[in-house]
Design a protein around this nucleic acid. Sequence first.
RNA 1: GCCCGCUUAGCUCAGUGGUAGAGCAUUCGCUUUACAUGCGAGUGGUCGGGGGUUCAAAUCCCUCAGCGGGCACCA
Length: 746
Amino acid sequence: MDKAYDPKAVEGKIYSMWESGGYFTPKIDKKKKPYSILLPLPNANDPMHMGHAMFVIEDILIRHHRMKGDPTLWLPGGDHAGIETQYVFEKKLAKDGKSRFQFDRDTLYRMIAEFVEQNKTVNRDQMKRLGFSLDWTRYHYSLEPEIVATVLDTFRAMHKDKLVYRDSRLVNYCTRDGTSFSDLEVKHVERTDPLYYMKYGPFVLATTRPETKFGDTAVAVNPRDKRYTKWVGKEIEVEGLAGKFRVVVVADDVIDPTFGTGIAKVTPAHDFTDWEIAKRHNLPAKQVIGFDGRMTDAAGPYAGMKVGTAREQIVRGLESRGLMDHIDTNYVHTVATCYKCGSVLEPLPIPQWYVKTKSLATQAIKAVKEGKTKIIPKKRFEKMYFDWMENILDWNISRQIVWGPRIPVWYCLDCNPAVTLSFLSKDDQKITGSYGDICTNHSFEEIRDGLQSLSAPLEATYTLTEGTCKTCRGTHILQETDTFDTWFLSSQWPLTTLGFPNGEDFNYFYPTSVLDTMWDILFFWVARMMMMGLYRTKKVPFEIIHLHSRVVDAKGQKMSKSRGNVVNPLKMVDQYGADALRFTLVFGAAPGSDIAVSEDKIRGMRNFANKLWNIGRFVLMNFESAGKEIPFYNKNMTLSNPEDNKIIAALNKLIASVTKDIERYRFSDAAQALYEFAWHTVADMYLEKNKERFKTGDAESLAVLRHVCLTLLKLLHPFMPFVTEKIWGKMPKKYDKPLIISSWPD
RNA sequence: GCCCGCUUAGCUCAGUGGUAGAGCAUUCGCUUUACAUGCGAGUGGUCGGGGGUUCAAAUCCCUCAGCGGGCACCA
């Protein structure tokens, strides 16, 4: 054995040994209770970051249960990550001076699929570097046909149960990414913007969005605001930028009399509050901003301008006409921005597919209240979970992107001539219009082949199966171009990857034992898996939700590219070994809190791995110099030396505490106890005090020494699998099988 | 605005009623044949401020301050 442990020379070979030995693949044994965890599926073409490395928590649980003899499954997968991937791909396109609008949707889809294919193995290979004992034979990718088929089936089941429906309401729409989002994907950001006080008929009113003036269909006041009581119900005449127009004055409770002048202009098509006001007062909605982020024809002279430009121009126009009373330049408010690209989101009216969530949430709340699923740490996250579930809104599952499974709904164009189509014609012109208008100049086949997107009016009839129209017998049928929200697919991961409804894995491993992830996707993913799992199987998808630490830098700052404080896990593995990084991520991490990672700390843990190596080396040297068979320690042995009795007692205490700590998800406590025991109790004290006895080849002391060392390797194996496996391989043992499948001490 | 969490050694964090802990950093001394990725010894905290309960509080309660997070339709 070398003087120092060299992880680079060891890790690759050990991992291959485990993988080729088939140790990651569980043997299904109906007599035993299985233990299973699904790896939170990373974006398949995303390189690994420290957040992924934190899945070491799962490897610890998995290795512990495997050693306990449970049929243990850790199932890996990769996500197509709809918006994320399309966003990255479009940035690549932009570099080549191209845009998504230059391609029909089938071509665009193929291009993205090829792009993903090139990078698909990156993340997988990196997971292996960390020693993750994932069952790669069960790897799943989110767009596999079987997985998509189950997802589509869920959609149909929900449609039948009236849990999915189509509605036209305001959605948060990113005009840059060209898609709507669910409420969860909206990031509220505080900003300082001008608040414009403009003259408005007989009033002065405050608004941050003067450009939406063309879409105003009312003004609103609070019913208890005496200043305006006499106006309520009357029409007022307003001088606009393109002639005069008339709007009605309505009274509505949401209006805060203390804000601005107590009067709000009502723009139903572009503001969530106004949309609600309009519904209550039967006001029409007038869309003045298009899905491309430009003013529509309804904006008269400003048509075609981007919203920002139009605002500047309109402010100038109002000022020159004397219609601007004054401007408050220091108004602080929050705006909704896109969580992917940061653009300001535009509330726009568009028909979308929704999941009715209320009844699903009720079940998900009940399951946690009844303890069928436990959340750890309970204190902080259970309340968050309940708060969210209790206030849940219906879930918009349509996305206007191509990268993902299309919603399985078909429209007959002959029955629905008002369906709006965007497509590339044979001569590569982008054409948009209703089918009724364009079908005279373009054949159905031309439209189909060049199709980019379609938008069906809310009244449009549709079927859930492909084929000839049952009403008119026509064949001019097109599928919905909206794709599913990625989370609609991943919320069914426990079902799809295990082969719901009748797969052997599903029958055996579902419900899974633990779902471990960081808390940032508690709502996006975990809560929705609860709802979907309960909906389809009447059983919870997992018994425990464990929310692990967020990895931050040495100063406690969140790691981000813009801060420049990102620590690359693979670089650390190269430099200090996977075991060192793994132990760093566990040591000092309390669930739900942050864990600080610095190179200094990783180096310290590398030193600990080396310490273990040298304990092993010390034991071996003593066995070699003894040059004889040493009996194996067993519990019935009577030990004559008090030092031996002491170390055995301490070891037994350690076994109990480490086992308990892992069972209670107190990984840091276990790691600290192991560190303390190995380094100080064993190396500093026991080895030093008894060196002379080992040298003389005393059989009892050597038997105890070997037992302590082998047991310590077992206890440490889930945390530091490589160095422990390597030392184990060199030690004299009763049975020669790898540490990974040895038995957990008791 | 509403809700939650945090504040303990230079740094990052454990500790939740009974004489203050870890890792890293730091100081001093050691070429002792398992390991200088080491060994030995040490420095370092009135546990955010204030008040209360208790024989006893870092730990329970109240309050103030700072930091972080979740939720939210203020035009």
